[in-house]
Amino acid sequence: MRDRVVRWARGAVAALVLAGLVVAPWVVDDYTTALLARTLALALVGVSVALLTGVAGVPTLGQTAPYAAGAYACAVLGSRISDVGVVQLAVAAGAGAVLAALTVPLVVHARGVIVLMITLAIGELVVTVLGRWRSVTGGTDGLAGIPAVRPFWGLPAFGSDQARYLYALVVVATLVGAVLVLLRTRAGLLLRAARDDETRLRASGHRVPLYLSGAHIAAGAIAGAAGSLLVVAQQYISPADFGFDTSALLLLGVVIGGTASVGGALVGAALVIAVRDWLFGVLPGHAPLVLGVLFVATVYLLPAGVDRVRGRWRPSGPPHRPDAPAAPDQATVAELRR
């Protein structure tokens, strides 16, 4: 009974938020609409971070890599070949997926904090490459003057911030819906099982690295698609959009949102990005300081963080199972405690 009420309330809140997002561009000014469109793109990257960090149990600081790959693929495509949104979206998602597939061997065998480190290195290296590969990426100046996008063949190109925002909203809603549906299938179940007890799943004949590779590539595709939305929203990209602070902000948003919850990741990432944008507006110069202090404060306010959320998925499990199944010392501790 209580579950049903909670589910109903959650649905109602989601519907309200969606309705608010649809009417938002007519309520706020153009600048805020453009900011909102960019925030939507980043929130979609947040969903891909949650998919890896919370659902698959592979914490990541490197989702800006496929995000950047998608954005640059889309920008190059948009200024040279095609201005059709659907094509750009598909190419961007493909670019993100390819980059993620290339980095699978680096990520899939590591667990816990080691993945965090490897993914961070990957993300930072991608930004370095973007800054130096001038002939394609325009170096640190970035790519500007990307032509306006038309959503589909034969439709007019977007001329206003409202139109761009609504396009981003439709794409984000579709992709998030797809992720939610996918997580309800067997695939989502297997990913969670791999996160909760990898050894047991392996022992019963499942190929966990294969599942994790699939999740990594899917998350890369989502982040790549988000990159395409960023290009539509900003019509300008530079390596600064994909810096290490973006990864950390998204991870913070995902942790605030509850790590394994897709909706929570959307809200958390959007909240964190909005706070950042607002801070940089009102406190030019001191924004990083305040943002850093907020980071520390948030971590203290979420003392149990990941563990608490994980408890929800495994209520009958031992109380103190560590989150990272393969952090070596902890794995031994779990064995001792059991």
Binding site: A248, V296, P303, G305
Partner: peptide, 9 residues
Amino acid sequence: GNHLSQALL
């Protein structure tokens, strides 16, 4: 052991 919180902090 809460790596995410430590890294974020």
